[in-house]
Design a protein around this nucleic acid. Sequence first.
DNA 1: CTAATATAGTACTGCTTTTGTACTATTTAA
DNA 2: TTAAATAGTACAAAAGCAGTACTATATTAG
Lengths: 150, 150
Amino acid sequence: MLRIGKMTDYGIVLLSHFAKAEQASAMNARELSVSAKLPLPTVSKILKLLSRADLLVSHRGVAGGYRLAKSASDISVAEIISSLEGPIAVTECSAIEVGLCDMESVCPTRTHWKKINVVVRKALEQLTLADMVTSASPRPRLSIALGKTT
Amino acid sequence: MLRIGKMTDYGIVLLSHFAKAEQASAMNARELSVSAKLPLPTVSKILKLLSRADLLVSHRGVAGGYRLAKSASDISVAEIISSLEGPIAVTECSAIEVGLCDMESVCPTRTHWKKINVVVRKALEQLTLADMVTSASPRPRLSIALGKTT
DNA sequence: CTAATATAGTACTGCTTTTGTACTATTTAA
DNA sequence: TTAAATAGTACAAAAGCAGTACTATATTAG
């Protein structure tokens, strides 16, 4: 089913709130919890992760809060996913390097994941937070050209 | 982490065996279990699913077994994934239609998943089983052009 | 016609992952 | 100095998935 976690779902929702009110510099976790109707601890957790990944800038203290670290069109969906769920990889054995998976000698084509990952990651890098907020473009026109190097 | 289940992993491995020996009409579950070094019950389960999805053709009885239903270049990775894990969708609320998710009024951009799904699915439809078997093309040259309809 | 072989279907158990929460520390401004 | 807000860590509960076993059905061989 190619699942991405709920955390990423929430993350995009929260980031969308920032993107829509980009002028309002700072929003704190409680405000967002109310406006997004998500539990506060969960919101805090996600905002934390997003700021650690430099998608949000945090400001602590009394009048603190979070704000978008860069323009919504400069934040790719790939970035959002990898900050909330780790590197984009379809299975463990292709996240890092070759040679970790001890079954590599057994299965002749465990390299297939690398190919799949490349395709998926490229696709997600094209989508930005700005695209997510745009209610227009019901179906983004998309063409993928896949040429082999052989 | 964008996880796809192990079942799909195994499925691609098994299908690769068929693709490599495409002339050998039929292979049964036990043979494949040995050559792929995967547990027999698991192999059976996967082959069953793949044949139900018309990627393999089954033949029961004494000299029975499975064989590829069509050419490896006509089997897309998207097909393989959806036959082993259900429809390709990143979350439940975008698998089918709009209107199921009761939070749709709350979150202004729950439609984001639809956009993400379209991009990912398109990407996976481009990759075929034949690509998986090709040990050449270490990094498939890939260009994605994304134009908005607005 | 019977027996042997192989797939088809179903149901169940254990485990891993992920979600969600709570608690404590640290920073900042009034 | 105090209050407000983020940072960090640790943990418990729940959901999803992997893997196995068992039974039924079909097909071929003798």
